[in-house]
Design a protein around this nucleic acid. Sequence first.
DNA 1: AAGGTGACCGGCC
DNA 2: TGGCCGGCCACCT
Length: 105
Amino acid sequence: MGENFFERVYILVRQIPYGRVTSYGAIAKALGTARSARMVGWALNASHNLEDVPAHRVVNRKGLLSGKHHFEGANLMQQLLESEGIEVVNNQIVDFENHFWKPDF
DNA sequence: AAGGTGACCGGCC
DNA sequence: TGGCCGGCCACCT
């Protein structure tokens, strides 16, 4: 049980407020490894076991739901977001910058 | 131990 | 806005 990279990602993702979203790169930057954005995605891929990691609130820099195929249903990720009041059209978050949450450490 | 992989990003056109 | 390209680096064989 140490603090590895994955665990830090989970801790930060858990901080994302309800109804807000952030990006892989923003998380990586907040962790101090701005160039490890790909690892953030990988970490979330491994977060399937965990129940309290809101991975649906993490999208890419363009606001696209690039990870939707890793959720159970074809549109589970979109439904989760819409249930939080976030509009999603064509796999993209509407008014992304307005819903964006900047990770703070 | 070395190489492959990826839910990305930034720059450029 | 969209597409392409190169770099990135922790994790897994």
